[in-house]
Simulated scan of single mutants.
Amino acid sequence: MNRGLDWQELAQLLLTATGETLYMVLLAALFTALIGLPLGVLLFVSRPQGLLPMVRLNRLLGTLVNLGRSLPFVVLLIALIPLTRMVVGTTLGSTAAVVPITIGAFPFFARIVENALEEVDKGRVESVLAMGGHIGHVIFKALLPEALPTLLAGLTLTLVLLIGFSSMAGVIGGGGLGDLAIRYGYQRFNNQVMFATVVVLVVLVQCVQSVGDRLVRSLAHRR
């Protein structure tokens, strides 16, 4: 910009961009959990020594998850432009950005779920099976309840990851704080906007991490 922004203009831009970022993060978090949780459970139970061994399926899913985790998110953003246009009808805006953000995040959360279930005491699983329980009982009565604190901690990490992804989505016009930093800060050499967006992003991450840590400690204390 050729002139600096006054505080009222900057505050309005930050408020709008923060709302768009929260919209992207919360919606992507919902889809990430809906996809990543059952995928992580399936990865766990389909292991060769798991409750429902399916070696080929496990290897296939594991390969896909590892591939999704290994791709740089900026590359994924560009590669998924055709899919985003197909699903949403456009590649611009906060809603469109939810598609690549979700696809980039759910493999990460799936691995977290798998690792969390692995930490559950095997004795709890065996006791459910000894009482005649089937695999559904084991998952919903033993595995998920016992792994809940770890899952919540993993979800907190995933939310922090989603905030970072939502910022990078600004590269392709995804809206939010990242888009604000690029269009008003970087492209117009406005350090005021750059600094303000960084501060807001740091505050968002700290708030998410703090709330998540408190919930995990509270849940662990009750147990």
Rank of each mutant, 00 (worst) to 15 (best):
L151Q: 13
R124K: 15
G178Q: 08
L155I: 07
L143N: 02
G170P: 07
A181M: 14
K122P: 01
V171G: 13
L143Q: 02
L159S: 03
G173S: 11
E146A: 15
E119A: 15
S127F: 02
L177A: 13
G173K: 09
A181G: 10
L159I: 02
G123A: 08
T158R: 11
G132D: 00
L129F: 09
A110T: 07
P145R: 10
G170E: 03
I135P: 00
F165S: 12
M168Q: 15
I172P: 11
K122L: 03
I135R: 03
L159K: 05
Y184K: 14
G154F: 10
H137S: 06
L177Q: 13
Q187H: 13
A110V: 07
I163H: 09
V128R: 04
I163T: 12
I112N: 00
L143F: 01
F140E: 01
P145K: 10
G176N: 12
V171S: 14
E114F: 05
T158V: 11
I112A: 02
L159R: 04
L162F: 03
M131G: 10
R124Y: 12
L159D: 04
D179L: 10
S127K: 02
V128W: 00
D179V: 09
L151S: 11
G136T: 04
V128H: 02
V120H: 01
P149Q: 13
L161A: 07
Y184L: 14
A142P: 07
A116Q: 03
L144I: 12
G173H: 10
I139P: 00
G185M: 12
G123I: 04
E146T: 11
I139W: 01
G176T: 12
F140V: 02
G178W: 05
V160Q: 06
S127T: 13
L143H: 00
